[in-house]
Computed example of a mutant assay.
Amino acid sequence: MFEMKIYTKGGDQGQTSLYDGQRVYKNSLQVETYGTFDELNSNISLADKFCVSEQNKQYLQHVEHLMFLLQGELAAGTPEKYYQKSQVITNEDVKFLEKVIDRYSEKLPKVTSFILPGASQAGAQLHVCRTVCRRAERLLITYMEDHEVRPEIERYVNRMSDFFYIIARDEDYEERINKIVAQVIDQYQKIMEEKSYD
C-alpha cells in the first residue's frame, strides 16, 4: 500500500504552495495569517481536552472544523476556485457564535471589574485561544489592506475572541461550582462518619 511521505522537499528553498499551486515565500503575510489561525486551531484542540463541560467541548469542536474552512479560504491564491470545491464560513456561523455568547452572558454572574485570564486549566487555555485569535485578527486586517476577504470571515474572526472569553468564564464557573459541591459532599460524609461513632 502506498504511503504518502510527510516531507516533500518542496519547501527547502523557503517557499510553499497555495491552494491553486502558486508558490509564495513562507514568511509572506498571507502564509503568516493562515498559519496563525492554524496555531489558534491547535490551541482550541488543547482547550477542548481540558473542558469539564461536554457542551463546551462540542462548541469548540464545531469551531475547530470551521477553522479548516477559514484557513483554506485564506490559503487560496485564487479564492474563486476554492469556492467551487469547498464549503465556506457563512453569516449563519457568525450567528451561531453570537447565540452562544448571548446565552452564556445571561447565565453567568455579571463582571464588574477586570478578571485574571483563567481560574481553571480550561479557562486559562481558552484565554490563550482568545489572545492568539486577536493576533490572527490583527494579521488578517493587515492582509485585507491589499487583498479582498469576504466580510463573513472578518465578522467570524471578531466574534471568535468573544466566544473564547465567554467559554473561559463558563469553565471557570463550572469548576468553582464543582469544588463547592465536592466540599459539601466531603463535609456531609464527615458528619455521617462522626454520627456512626456516637
Rank of each mutant, 00 (worst) to 15 (best):
K49N: 14
N43Q: 13
V132C: 10
F68N: 03
Y82I: 06
N158L: 08
S45F: 10
V94A: 05
L40P: 06
L97P: 06
P109C: 09
Q71T: 12
E39T: 15
A75R: 02
E145N: 10
I141D: 14
A119C: 14
S113R: 09
Y156F: 14
S53R: 02
V132P: 03
Q58H: 11
L139T: 04
F96N: 10
Y82R: 12
N91G: 06
R130V: 15
V128W: 08
D102L: 11
L46N: 10
K99Q: 12
A122C: 02
Q87K: 12
S86L: 04
R130G: 15
R23G: 01
G72N: 09
L46H: 11
Y156K: 03
L126I: 05
S45I: 08
E148P: 03
M144T: 02
R103N: 11
T78N: 06
M144C: 01
F163T: 11
Q58C: 10
L70Y: 04
L46A: 15
P117A: 13
N91F: 13
P117D: 12
I141T: 15
S161F: 01
K26M: 08
L126H: 02
C129K: 00
E106D: 15
R23M: 05
F114N: 11
F68C: 01
A124Y: 09
Y34K: 07
